[in-house]
Design a protein around this nucleic acid. Sequence first.
RNA 1: UGGGGAGUCGCCAAGUGGUAAGGCACUGGAUUUUGAUUCCAGCAUACGUAGGUUCGAUCCCUACCUCCCCAGCCA
Length: 561
Amino acid sequence: MPTDAVVSNFIRSIIDEDNRTGKWNQRVETRFPPEPNGYLHIGHAKSICLNFGIAHDYNGVCHLRFDDTNPEKEAQEYVDAICENVAWLGFDWGEHLHYSSDYFDQLYAFAEYLITQGKAYVESLTADEIREQRGTLTSPGQNSPYRDRLPDESLDLFRCMKAGEFPDGKYVLRAKIDMASPNMNMRDPVIYRIRHIHHQRTGDQWCIYPMYDYTHCISDALEKITHSLCTLEFEDHRPLYDWVLDQLEGKVPCHPQQIEFARLNLTYTVMSKRKLIELVESDLVDDWDDPRLSTLAGVRRRGYTPKSIRQFIERIGVSKADSWIDVSVLEDCLREDLNESAPRRVAILRPLKLIIDNYPEDLEEDCFAPNHPKKPEWGKRVVPLSKTLYIERDDFMEEPTKGYFRLSPGAEVRLRYGYIVKCVAVDKNAVGEIEAIHCTYDAETKSGTEGATKRKVKGNIHWLSVKHAQPAEVRLYDRLFSDPYPDSGDKDYKTSLNPDSKEIITAYLEQSLCDAEPEQAFQFERNGYFIADRIDSKPGKPVFNRAVTLRDSWGKVDAGV
RNA sequence: UGGGGAGUCGCCAAGUGGUAAGGCACUGGAUUUUGAUUCCAGCAUACGUAGGUUCGAUCCCUACCUCCCCAGCCA
């Protein structure tokens, strides 16, 4: 059991009960079964964390199994990316890397067995005819004229299918169950189809491929999975899962239990594979790992840590109720992690010049900034101060609104880790835009000296010496959609794209940030958490992505919320 | 109008016959050289609706309402 208090959920209750009755001899074995036909997204993270997390908590193991039964859509590229994502999230499948295609021989042998038992038959109808005879939600289907084909004849045909004697679609193998079942999945489902396609792992060895419903349950059983977790839409596939394994009782090692949970829905994003593909292919985002995307590659590049994602999945829990999680919950989990782990640095995103009129022209002074406010053991670094500085434009208001306590004409603030300054003048250009502001400083108030505590000012702003500041590309990301439910109804989700979801700026950084390693995260004080882009950063020349802003209670007040 | 699921605080989510956990959000207040963090306090007479059983119901029964999933030779 993990050290953190684990909240009970319906899946754990089932396992606890199984352990109590000894159903599996205290064994817990799960699996994460992606189809390698696309990139993983944050919704998959729920399944990954659930499967690996439960196995870990119950001293069991979790397999990574690629459900690769449809070579038409699958590719090695996806297998590699998925492995990388799962490992990145912090999970280890050890020796349990499996593929459904590992079981093609056994799957085939079981199919022959089903035929000999009169539980499956070769169908001669076309796909269209099968559809027509399947019936509807409210009316039963009708039996195929080939349903009572003799087992020997079916077996013969099936062997010829395997031998490549027929073109795609000519025949299909169907389970013989019940065409009148109110559950559509039980109306003699197709379990094998002919596909003369090269498979990324088995090559041209096969030209018939098994279907999901037939493959998944048997793969689970062969791997001795105990609890087979999947999402809600497979709930009415469970009778079929159980039917197949019931026919094979004694021939497979066990009969795993399928348990369904609600999939993750996140606001302000889309999760479906189709829409993700569309966004990428129509260049609405940069690529699969665009930091605005909910793909795991995307959130990683955005700056999300594996720990923050695991925390998120733990926080949202698991149940069978359809639910929408607000993306702010995800963002909070990142803040929680990075608040602890990210060193503090100074960066000016939108610079405004501040000149200290009474500061000596050539003087440079060292100011000492702690690397983390709560961790003195992390030490301090030197930030040089001089006469001309950059501050954030937001930290000055010529006509301050009520409650604003940063810089404005006549007002005093502390230059963080430096002196208290007072605004004495504003420079404007010909069209009235503010170009610089002038301050005087109180030489008695330097941080770290005795005088620092004599006077208190409420405002506290960050700054950088102009001559020391380093320009760098910084990408400010925001939510990809401006509608919390871009997917809902019949509106086109592409119409609710947020036009301001990506802004590229040249910001100024303190010197030490130039040494940032790719994927190193920092808190830019009073701004947010930023990560050195893992792709575009060059030695000595980092590019930063804003992963998430700091919480900002003033922003809410200011916006009149 | 067939079948399978779900409805507990703004968002998640426990509890399942004995009088509503927890988290997040939110609201106060304290601390703070990040309007951050941290801390402390508050936050469902109420469990989709209506009946019924019971000393007692979110939990059992009945009816109803709402939402989700299913008619791929996809997974």
